[in-house]
């Protein structure tokens, strides 16, 4: 055998300085980029904040509660948009939460074989991936006519509630409005709630379920009294994440909400959100109007940041258990 002999030289050679610098430099570089993710978040806050300064100086905190948005007189207030943002997101949660938890149960219990469950997982994945603008377009064509009918039904049966009232003289729901936006948003956040709730339900210790079944509880008693309470922090975390998404969702909402300038109590009327305001007015704005838009963007950023941080903390806690 033409053997390679072990190198008899015993001295440990010195690696070149370049090689060592490359190694430490590389680790430092990755560290810088990792930190970059956080810096980027801070940078976003600073950039939006700086451009909002003129509006903050002019209108102060009263901006949030003032209802005037008048580019002609250069007076701006964000209330209708803040209100619309909160209400549309609330409607979405109200509709998506029961359906989402239902889907999560369907996916975590053994009602049907795993193959069929997998199809539904893929359905949720696709629902989450369809572009917002396509939801909006579909909303215009399909949802607005449907919701005109549903809205009319609500108005005729529950019209005595201010929530489902129409202004005097108006007998029919015209089309776009808060209710359509709420439904579109509900569809868009459904996959988030369903996926995270399912993870939470699956991670409940099987012993708990077996203990309940062993005590003679039926499947549904076990689900309602044991599984759902045990998974509640995960479900709440997922709902918070969905809320964050709903608050900031732009295109689909802009296309179906009607973009009214005033806040109205009734959900059957056109409204506006911060995101839809930005989408509609940003490109043509300048001066104080642009700064006011930046101010609203800052409010939206703060709002979603708060919700997302809370959601993240809650979800992390349940993942750790």
């Amino acid at each position: 055998m033409s053997a390679a002999t072990g190198n008899p030289s015993s001295a440990i050679s010195q690696r070149s300085a370049t090689s060592k610098t490359l190694d430490t430099g590389f680790i430092l570089l990755t560290r810088i980029f990792a930190a970059g993710v956080g810096i980027l978040l801070l940078w976003i806050a600073i950039i939006v904040g700086i451009q909002a300064i003129p509006a903050i100086q002019t209108f102060g905190l009263g901006f949030i509660t003032s209802s005037t948005w008048n580019p002609v007189k250069d007076i701006y207030g964000a209330w209708p948009h803040v209100y619309g943002t909160l209400v549309s997101a609330s409607i979405a949660l109200l509709l998506a939460l029961p359906v989402g938890v239902g889907v999560a149960l369907f996916l975590s219990e053994d009602f049907l074989p795993a193959r069929i469950q997998n199809i539904l997982v893929f359905v949720l994945e696709l629902l989450a991936a369809i572009p917002s603008v396509v939801y909006g377009f579909w909303g215009i064509v399909v949802l607005i006519p449907t919701m005109r009918y549903v809205g009319g039904l609500l108005n005729r049966t529950l019209g005595w509630l201010p929530l489902f009232a129409l202004p005097p003289g108006q007998t029919e729901v015209t089309g776009p409005g808060m209710h359509v936006a709420g439904v579109v948003l509900a569809i868009m956040i459904l996959p988030i709630i369903a996926a995270i709730s399912r993870d939470a339900l699956i991670s409940v210790a099987p012993e708990l379920r077996q203990a309940a079944l062993g005590l003679g509880a039926t499947r549904w008693e076990t689900i309602l009294k044991i599984m759902l309470p045990a998974a509640s922090s995960g479900i709440v975390g997922g709902t918070m994440l969905a809320l964050g998404r709903a608050l900031g969702e732009t295109m689909a909402v802009t296309m179906v909400i009607g973009n009214a300038k005033a806040a109205s109590t009734s959900v059957l009327l056109p409204a506006s959100t911060i995101a839809s305001l930005l989408a509609n007015e940003f490109a043509e704005a300048d001066g104080l109007q642009l700064s006011s838009l930046m101010y609203t963007a800052l409010i939206l950023f703060g709002l979603t940041l708060l919700v997302n941080v809370l959601a993240e903390v809650i979800v992390r806690r349940f993942r750790q258990i």
């Binding site: 993710v37 978040l41 939206l300 979603t304 997302n308």
Partner: peptide
């Protein structure tokens, strides 16, 4: 990273 993924896309546009 997770918080960044929750920033609304319109706000990223403003940025």
């Amino acid at each position: 990273t997770n918080v960044l993924s929750g920033v609304p896309s319109i706000v990223v546009g403003v940025f």
